[in-house]
């Protein structure tokens, strides 16, 4: 059961930052990870700071750069027609997270703050080169997504800080996709998830793999392969080889490391074929 805890719903960012500086205070947004962890006795906050009343976290913009506030839930991301046009990979990823009911609560920012290696929203944000905008006692700072997630359940958030929003500064047109291997069709955590973007005009190919290392793995050197290899099947093979060199999956209750490796190869190939042809 959830143990006794204090609750505060600040009306302003200033109040929120102040509250978050108290001993063992946690921000509460969708709560779909935090409340589970509290019920299971994994986390023991003394104070929950409900940030859902903060206007700064309700922002959502798709004109020019994409801005997704900390309170934007995943169903909103799936349903927004403009976002679907500009950056479909976010909705595609979100659709695989948990269940419909949970997505009415779960936020994109919460998904990355939870920093699970299998976070389904992370690979898309990596390939879109998203930035996390953080507010804290020292003001605002922008953190690239791959510097924001630092390890298993670890982020670069400091005491008293709260994530305001995620920004995608350059949602340049490019073909994107997200694919997820799970144990069955019902809601499940990823065995492997992959996201990618390819832009033939700029010669950019970015591929990110989740659930196969302590953090999502953004492949390095994909641009060179993309520029030099014209045959899509050959490209898919080469990117997949690169992927296998870059990941370090483990055996756990969901999958063996070997299956994760082999599925990474399959899914990266499928991804590359989807976005590069």
């Amino acid at each position: 059961m959830i143990k006794p805890v204090a609750y505060f719903k600040p009306g302003s960012l200033k109040e929120a930052v102040e509250a978050l500086q108290t001993e063992n205070a946690w921000p509460l947004a969708g709560g779909t990870d935090l409340l589970v962890n509290m019920r299971n006795g994994v986390e023991h906050p003394d104070l929950l700071v409900d940030i859902k009343g903060l206007e700064e976290l309700n922002v959502f913009e798709v004109d020019g750069k994409i801005i997704i506030g900390g309170n934007i839930n995943l169903n909103f991301i799936i349903d927004d027609a403009r976002l679907r046009k500009v950056c479909p990979v976010l909705g595609q990823s979100a659709l695989t997270v948990a269940t419909y009911q949970l997505r009415n609560r779960a936020t994109l920012v919460g998904n990355i703050c939870n920093a699970s290696p299998a976070a389904d929203m992370a690979p898309a944000l990596y390939v879109m080169e998203a930035e996390v905008v953080v507010s804290g006692p020292q003001g605002e700072r922008h953190v690239p997504i791959n510097e924001f997630i630092t390890g298993v359940k670890k982020t670069s958030l400091k005491k008293g800080e709260v994530v305001l929003r995620v920004e995608i500064p350059n949602p340049k047109v490019g073909k994107t996709a997200f694919l997820k291997k799970q144990r069955y069709r019902g809601h499940d955590l990823a065995t492997v998830n992959v996201a990618g973007i390819a832009n033939p005009d700029t010669g950019t190919l970015r591929v990110c793999i989740g659930a196969c290392a302590v953090t999502p793995v953004l492949l390095k050197g994909t641009d060179e392969l993309y520029k030099s290899i014209k045959d899509v099947d050959e490209l898919a093979d080469k990117v997949s080889e690169l992927a296998l060199q870059s990941i370090s999956p483990i055996d756990d209750v969901r999958s063996s490391a070997e299956y994760r490796r082999d599925m990474t190869a399959v899914y990266v190939k499928r991804l590359v074929r989807t976005i590069c042809s």
């Binding site: 144990r183 069955y184 069709r185 019902g186 809601h187 499940d188 209750v253 969901r254």
Partner: peptide, 14 residues
């Protein structure tokens, strides 16, 4: 795997 996170019964999707 003593929970619905890792013990999966079939859903309407399956």
């Amino acid at each position: 795997n003593a929970s619905f996170v890792d013990y999966k019964i079939l859903t309407a999707k399956d």
